[in-house]
Each structure stands twice: as C-alpha cells, then as structure tokens.
Simulated assay, not measured.
Amino acid sequence: MGYQAMLPPGVVVLERGWLSSNNIVIRGRSGAAVVDSGYCTHAEQTVELVAHAAGDRTPQTLVNTHLHSDHCGGNAALQSRWPGLRTLIPPGLAAAVRNWDEVALTFVPTGQRCPRFDFQETLRPGEAIALGDLSWEVHAAPGHDQHSVILFEPTSRTLISADALWQNGFGIVFQELEGERAFDEVAATLDLIEGLEPQVVLPGHGAPFVDVAAALGRARSRLEAYARGPARHASHAAKVLLKFKLLEIQQVTVADFVAWAESTAYFGLVWRRWFSGTPEASWIASLLEDLVRSGAARIENGMLAND
C-alpha cells in the first residue's frame, strides 16, 4: 500500500529535494496549515506550491519543526503572501528570532541565508496543536537539532519526523560538531519514534515511507558507526554543508569555494577538532574531491559545479 492511502484527509506532502525541506500542507474545513517552509532561494516556488496545495483554503498557520535555514527560509515569503499567518516555532530559540541573532540561529556559522521572519507562539512539547481539522501531538526530538520537535497524529499514526528520521538515516548532529555529546539524544529520539508506532512517516527530506522498522534499523546502524568514529560523522557533516552551499550557488571557482569554506565558522570548528594535522585548505580540497568521486559535484577547468 502506498503512503498516500494511509494519510489522514487533507494532508498533502510537497517533496522538495535537499536544498529545501519538504513542506506539509494540511487542509481543514476553514483553512490550511503549513509545516516547514524550505530554503530562501526557493521561496517563490514554495509560495506557489503551498497556494496550489491549499486550494480554496487560506493558509492560517505555519509551524517550523526546527529553525535550520532549509526549514524556515521561506517563512518571510509565506508571511508576506498571507498577512496574519500565525507562526509557531520550537522553544529554545525564541529570543534569537526575536532579536534576529543569526549566529545563534546558525545561519552565519554555516554560511547559509534566511530572511528575517516573525513568530507569534512557541510549540509546547507534551501538548497538542490543531493543524487543519486534526490534532497533532508535539514531541521534543533533540539530536539533529537540540530544539527540534516532531508532530504525531495518533488516529492515523502519521508522523512528521523532520530530520530526526529519514528513510535512510537522519540529519547532521550539530551539537556533536560543537563538542557536546548528542549521539545519545539521537538514540533517545529514535526510541521515542519507535514507541509512537507510526504507520507512515513524512520526513524533512526524501520520500515519505511506511517501513518504519527498517528505517529505524538503518538509522541506528549509522548512529552506532558515528558513535564509534565521531571523525567520520564530522567529515560527513562538512561534506553535507559544502554540498548544500553548492546546491545554492550551483557553480563557483574551486579557489573561491575553498576560501568561502575557510571563512565559514563551522568548517574551522570541525577542522580544528578532528583534522588539524592537515592544512585547512588541503582538508577542504580533499572533501571536494570526495564529492566529485561520489558524483555529487564536478570540477572542470578550475570550476566546481553541482552535479
């Protein structure tokens, strides 16, 4: 059975790829809700997709599962298109959004962008929120992001998992890059998801899926490998951040891209903690070579391009 047949009425999944997170539109009798808004370079497309999915329902509520740029970068555009859009964010970074602290929000340290947006309320783990005509449980899901939440609709057993669980893994564990122990939090969140017994999972990236046990098994296997070798996780994280930027800009000289990475805080953080035995520029160049070997990028005549 495909996942569409298992979704509760009114739920539409907009699968977006990897620069933008997936968007979930939930239509109700009197309006619509949106979960996550993608990256800023796709904001115009996000508005169009949401408007089409909402149909004759006006978007009234916007929820962010967490505040990484690929999940909230379209907030400002959605708020502009639908003035009065009630926006809810996870607790923990409310002051950073209110004061627009782009360092605390990780936009500056990762070299990413997000237009300023407003919010009205914070989500409360342990409580429920009405989205469309459905009541969704809010659960804290630290690990990938310490402030992240996941949303669970218990009647249909539908889980909006954000980056806590994908079909083939989970998102970078940023606290580990910053020197804080967080792999145990990832494990606890995976246990939480297993305990909820979802029948269908709507992830932050990639296709929705129904074989939750298999996905949990793959995620735990990856987590165990990272816990045994945290440098492996750190290297993977650096390559993900490089690929993200390349998806945004599409093409750049190798020299300029290496210089950008050297000036971006997270790369220096990872390099100093795990790879300082190699000059930073050489380490970054080796990561680009790995991306080329994997088919995620190409280099021709000194130009690096997305592939």
Rank of each mutant, 00 (worst) to 15 (best):
residue 113 R to Y: 01
residue 112 Q to M: 07
residue 217 G to T: 11
residue 189 T to K: 02
residue 276 S to G: 05
residue 40 C to I: 07
residue 120 Q to T: 09
residue 296 A to Q: 04
residue 16 R to I: 09
residue 273 R to I: 03
residue 60 Q to K: 14
residue 127 E to Y: 03
residue 17 G to V: 03
residue 70 D to K: 05
residue 109 P to Y: 00
residue 226 Y to C: 05
residue 110 T to Y: 09
residue 228 R to I: 04
residue 32 A to K: 01
residue 254 V to G: 15
residue 26 I to N: 09
residue 271 W to Y: 07
residue 37 S to P: 12
residue 190 L to E: 08
residue 4 Q to N: 12
residue 149 V to S: 10
residue 24 I to S: 12
residue 140 A to E: 06
residue 62 L to S: 05
residue 187 A to H: 06
residue 133 D to V: 06
residue 126 G to S: 01
residue 156 S to W: 04
residue 260 W to T: 13
residue 286 S to P: 14
residue 115 P to S: 07
residue 37 S to M: 03
residue 57 R to S: 13
residue 98 R to D: 14
residue 267 F to G: 10
residue 190 L to I: 03
residue 291 L to A: 00
residue 223 L to M: 01
residue 131 L to A: 09
residue 266 Y to K: 11
residue 131 L to D: 11
residue 9 P to D: 00
residue 297 A to E: 05
residue 72 C to P: 05
residue 111 G to M: 02
residue 212 V to K: 00
residue 223 L to R: 04
residue 105 L to G: 15
residue 302 G to Q: 00
residue 77 A to H: 04
residue 141 A to V: 02
residue 74 G to I: 01
residue 7 L to A: 06
residue 259 A to D: 11
residue 263 S to P: 11
residue 13 V to D: 13
residue 230 P to V: 01
residue 63 V to L: 02
residue 40 C to S: 13
residue 178 E to G: 08
residue 122 T to R: 01
residue 110 T to M: 09
residue 132 G to E: 00
residue 90 P to V: 03
residue 296 A to K: 06
residue 45 Q to C: 13
residue 29 R to C: 13
residue 33 A to Y: 00
residue 167 Q to F: 05
residue 122 T to S: 08
residue 11 V to Q: 05
residue 307 D to S: 15
residue 307 D to G: 15
residue 66 H to D: 07
residue 306 N to R: 15
residue 164 A to I: 01
residue 120 Q to V: 02
residue 66 H to S: 06
residue 81 R to Y: 00
residue 249 I to D: 14
residue 178 E to A: 06
residue 177 L to N: 08
residue 33 A to F: 03
residue 298 R to Q: 12
residue 299 I to M: 11
residue 62 L to I: 00
residue 303 M to N: 12
residue 96 A to H: 00
residue 12 V to L: 11
residue 150 I to C: 14
